[in-house]
Every structure is written in C-alpha cells, then in structure tokens.
Nucleic acid binder design. Structure first.
Lengths: 179, 179
DNA sequence: TTCTATTATGCAATTATGTGCATATGGTTT
DNA sequence: AAACCATATGCACATAATTGCATAATAGAA
C-alpha cells in the first residue's frame, strides 16, 4: 500500500485538500504513481483513522467546504520508515505486448492501429514532460526537492522517448510480415 | 480482467496444466503480464465455470494428478473479441520514482543503494532477454507467432537497456547533490 | 538422516484498484 | 434558458492482486 505513502509525501510539502491531492495525482506525482480521486478520498479516510493526518474543515461560501489535511508526526514517521524499505519492481502488465506475443491469434492491421494509438500516447506524454521540465526545472538554483523531481522527470523523459523509438521499430517489424 | 485472456492465449498454443501455466507466467508471457500461481489456478477455475476451457484430469503415479486445460471454441471467441478491443495504457506505479520525487524526505545514501539494486535487476532482465533471443529467435525462418514474440522481446530488450542507461544517469545526478 | 527442491494443486483472508453513481453550487458558454 | 464545466466531497459494488497457509510424494544433497 504505497498510495498512503505517496499521499503523505505530497502532504510533507504542504497541507492539502482531497481535491488538491486528486489534482496532484492527475499530474506531477501521478506521472510516477497513478490514482483516481475516489482512491485518494478513501485513503485519506484511512490515514485520518490511523492518525497519520490531521483533517480540519474550512468554511467556504457558495461551494462545498474544503477539508485540509496536514501530516502528523506519526505520519512523518511512517514516511521515514517507508523510505528505508527496499523498493518493489513495478509489475509489468501490458496488453499490447501480450497481443504481440499472441500474434497468430490477432489481426495485424487492427494491432497496427493499436500500436499507432500507443505511439501517440507516448508522444503526448513526452512533450508534456518536456514542457514541465522547461517551465519548472531548467533553472540552476534548485532546492534538493527540486533536484529529486528533476531526476524523476529526466527518467520519465528518457523512458517515453525510448518507447516512441521502440514502437516505431515494432510497427516497422510488423509491417514486414505478410507483405 | 486480462489475466483470463493471457491464460487463454497461452492455451491457444497448446493445452497445459495449471503448473505449466504458472511456470509460463514466471517466464515468457510473464515478461509482459505477471501473475502468481495462486492467481493462475483461481482464474482457471473461473474459465472452467464459464466454459472457456475444458479441463481433464490425467492420472499420475507417485505425484499429484495433473489437470490439463484445453481452450474451447467459446474461449477462442473471447480471445478474438479481446484482440479487437483497444489496449489500455499500463498504469505507472513505481516507488523508486516516488522516492526521487520526495527527495528531501529520504536519505540520499539509502536511496542510492536502492537505485543500485534496481539497476542490477534491470541488467539481469536485459541479459535474460538477450539469452532467450539468441536461443530461440535468432534464426530467420520464424513462424508468424515467432515473429510476434520476437517483436515483443525486442521491445523488452530496448526497454531494459534504456532503464540501465537512465538509472546510471540518475545515480550520477544523485551523486552531484550535497558534495 | 534431515532438509530442501521439484512436481502439482488449491483455499482463505486481506489489501488494493477500478467503475459507476450521488450531491451541491456558481460561473461561463450556447 | 439550458447545458456544461470547475469546485468539492464521498459511498457502494465489483474486480483484481497479495500473502500466508495447506497437502502430498519423490529425488537428491548436506
């Protein structure tokens, strides 16, 4: 259960509402650990129960009240303990690769379209990462936190770039079959 | 639920026991879709219930009887329908990247060790993939199924190679902090 | 001789994730 | 005026994955 830790990590930076967190998980930290808003709210309820966050409701007029969550001391202890534990390998689960693996049971032109779609998705991610890097992490006086995010982003960029290249190769190889 | 489809795809090739399938998921198809033996046995029970596989017990002396599972016609229909559906993007969930993202809450030397471990894991995968490619897919007269597996393997190799490179960069960048 | 690995199957409990739905309001677009 | 988007929260149901346990025989190593 590292969603808990990912949320706590976000709250280390600053106290946030569930809505803020959900948006963060749609962007920044979501590049490395994806979660929906429902998941975030459910996990926040658990963290509150365990006393790892402190939640206070803020009155608002016009729109629903916000609930601001602040990390507690025991929350920080949990983050620290987690940081020392070894990391798991992310588990691979890619339907596209399974379809390539099972090439004699699938239609090549359909699969080709699916590869094209995937290629576009990786291109989109790549340019999004580039924009973020230029906007926030190209200055030279970065904090330690900023440097860490830059390293993660750099890995993301080279990952996506590589995916774009490999998918191109795969599409070419697929095109050379049955022609 | 694409574990069902991954199992059916394996059974398209040849009928297999749960044990055989579990081993296949520890290697070959497991490179693209990971599953434990418990998961495989449970899913096989479901597939049997739905009539997508046909299961017959084979008597053995000395050791437990094997149950051989064969894909049925409706099982093949399910695989075909699945092959036409668009593929999902694999969901990113990587603790190591979250730790980099949260660099000011983690100890750099501990994180460095974790990066080293990850680097070794990717190197191991890379050389395993290379061995398999040389052994099974370097000949020129491949079947269509073989060509598909070669494309998937090629993508795996370039993925792992890229991870090895990027982790090297990340370790260097991490080393340049606080020195 | 004890311990471990391999073959072969699976249940039970827990934890995690995904999908659909529900509510409430103010501002902007058509 | 109606439709839609952003803000803000969350429940309920369903599916999937992890972890620990359980059984049972044989072969080979320590």
């Amino acid at each position: 259960m590292a969603l808990a830790e990912a949320i706590l990590v976000c709250l280390t930076d600053r106290p946030m509402s569930g809505y803020d967190l959900a948006k963060t998980f749609d962007a920044s930290i979501g590049f490395f650990w994806r979660a929906s808003h429902q998941q975030v709210y459910r996990e926040l309820a658990r963290l509150r129960e365990k006393g790892l966050v402190d939640s206070r409701e803020i009155e608002q007029s016009g729109r629903p009240n916000r609930i601001i969550h602040t990390i507690t001391n025991s929350g920080e202890d949990v983050v620290h303990a987690w940081s020392l534990k070894p990391c798991r390998m992310p588990s691979v689960k890619d339907e596209l690769l399974v379809k390539l693996y099972a090439l004699d049971t699938v239609d090549i032109s359909v699969l080709r379209e699916q590869l094209d779609i995937r290629l576009d998705q990786h291109r989109a991610k790549l340019s999004a990462y580039h924009r973020i890097k230029e906007k926030f992490y190209d200055g030279q006086n970065l904090t330690r936190a900023g440097k860490g995010k830059l390293i993660a982003l750099t890995m993301g960029i080279s990952n996506e770039g590589e995916m774009v290249k490999t998918l191109g190769t795969a599409i070419t190889m697929l095109g050379e079959i049955d022609e």
